[in-house]
Design a protein around this nucleic acid. Structure first.
Length: 453
RNA sequence: GGCGCGGUAGCCAAGUGGUAAGGCCGGGCUCUGCAAAAGCCCUAUGCGCCGGUUCGAUUCCGGCCCGCGCCUCCA
């Protein structure tokens, strides 16, 4: 069953198919800039992309999916952070790359096939810039910067449909680029940035002097290097539509003369409390912020998938509670399932929904419809395939530290219960509850949970 | 000003020209020393407002109201 996905360029829902004869599906996903911990909004994009990755694997086979996700490890923000902390750039980016990897793992995102960094592809970027200059699509300034000449690419603006880019009345007026007067045209964007004092020792040699690459060129260069001139799918958050992806198209197509990506996909942003996340509103969550509140990464992933990826999702703590409960239901359901013997078609509606432009809410609805129907005709193999597609790890229960004194009271109560000393057992239960914990008896033991607020 | 998205039960959220999936919360029941957990069952005559098209609209068209995002480096 083909995967159908909205294409941001044609604005149509189109099938995903490998475009090259080798049958490999080439997938490029714009990754993070590593200057701090990624927030939950960033992770929505990565979780959605992980869902795409998983569906592609199921559709074409794991060996036939080449998934590239870059890491931007040199730009204004990373350089600024390095200066502020008086540490080397690689020290700063290394720290946050590690953190990003740990967070992705916690959220059960499959690692990309290739994860190139901008700094390890400086030569490729320089080569591409040189080619653009040679073909008349870019120019160097006396200061040693290189800009892409937007006017040289008539197709510019096709993706974002922003042909007229002058500031209109009512638009947020932003301070002009300090390099504005170097450019031939205000729309031109930097391919290479000449060294400035605040860049410190962060610079590479180039035919235009010392400096560093502009942001957009890295994706064009790394995508080309690892996936070829034309790729099958290019994705990112909606904010990247303009200017980042628009610029990538311009650079790549002017360089190669071939279509850059056969399919574009952009996932929508996350809102918190109905507003865009921002530090001033105090509604910016990192993964650690949420796990510190006792939520499991699996529940966070579930909550991120609970809304349609192309719709703004209002992320709330409530949705995390709901996710945690829903996962518990799935966990218990799975326990009641036989290993094999189920009908292979049971979960077809779930996959149909996922293949229909990543309709995750409909897929979860279809999943629970099966669950509510009982275990008849269902087996773990089929169920686990769904869990794989969604990337939901059912063994990922929220973990909380149990204080020793609570553990001690629980042991005493368990002993009293074994003696059928009910008054003592009840007294201890009350004591444990007064301390904010709840004791859940099982046949063969007990669990302890913090009391719900 | 331009581009785009959305307003469906207490909360979240799919969906369809023919009478509303699913999750959470809430309620009931079963089970169980107690308490939970788990399982089972129930929970929108209604889909922002006003018109129109239609045998029939939440779903199509028009108008209005409200909310949100983007418009040069933010996933």
């Amino acid at each position: 069953m083909a995967i159908r996905l909205t294409d941001s360029l044609s604005r149509k829902v189109r099938e995903l198919q490998p475009g090259s004869p080798d049958g490999k599906f080439r997938f490029y996903n714009c990754g993070p800039t590593v200057y701090g911990p990624a927030h939950i909004g960033n992770f929505r994009t990565f979780v959605v992309n992980d869902l795409i990755r998983r569906l592609l694997e199921l559709e074409f086979g794991a060996d036939n999916v080449i998934h590239v996700r870059n890491i931007t490890d040199v730009d204004d923000k990373t350089i600024r952070r390095s200066r502020e902390e008086n540490r080397s750039l690689s020290e700063v980016t290394g720290q946050w790359i590690d953190k990003f990897h740990r967070d992705c793992e916690a959220l059960n995102c499959l690692p990309p096939t290739i994860e190139p960094t901008a700094t390890s592809h400086i030569g490729d970027q320089i080569a591409m810039i040189a080619e653009l200059i040679r073909k008349g699509h870019a120019y160097a300034t006396p200061e040693g910067s290189v800009y892409f000449k937007v006017a040289s690419f008539p197709e510019y603006g096709r993706l974002s449909r922003l042909k007229e880019r002058e500031l209109k009345l009512g638009a947020t007026v932003k301070p002009q680029d300090r390099d504005a007067d170097e450019k031939e045209d205000g729309s031109d964007f930097a391919l290479w940035k000449a060294w400035k004092p605040e860049d410190g020792d962060i610079a590479w040699d180039s035919p235009w002097g010392r400096g560093r690459p502009g942001w957009h060129i890295e994706c064009s260069a790394m995508s080309r290097k690892h996936l070829g001139d034309t790729i099958d799918l290019h994705t990112g958050g909606v904010d990247l539509l303009f200017p980042h992806h628009e610029n990538e198209i311009a650079q790549s197509e002017c360089c190669t003369g071939k279509p850059f990506a056969r399919h574009w996909y952009h996932s929508e942003h996350l809102l918190v409390d109905g507003k865009k996340m921002s530090k001033s509103l105090g509604n910016l969550y990192t993964l650690d912020d949420l796990t510190a509140k006792g939520f499991s990464p699996a529940a966070i992933r579930y909550a991120l998938l609970a809304g349609h990826p192309r719709k703004q999702l209002n992320f709330t703590l409530d949705s995390l509670h709901a996710a945690e409960k829903a996962l518990a239901t799935l966990r218990h359901y799975r326990e009641r399932l036989p290993e094999t013997g189920g009908s292979p078609d049971t979960f077809a509606p779930v996959f149909e929904a996922l293949h229909d432009d990543l309709n995750t809410p409909a897929a979860l609805g279809a999943l629970f419809k099966v669950v509510n129907h009982g275990t008849e005709g269902v087996d773990r193999a089929g169920f686990d395939r769904v869990m794989f597609a969604l990337g939901l790890r059912l063994d990922d229960e929220p973990r909380v530290e149990i204080p020793p004194q609570i553990r001690e009271l629980a042991e005493k109560r368990w002993a009293a219960k074994q003696q059928k000393d009910w008054p003592t057992a009840d007294a201890l239960r009350a004591e444990i509850q007064a301390a904010g914990w709840q004791m859940l008896d099982r046949r063969d033991g007990y669990d302890l949970q913090p009391l719900k607020a």
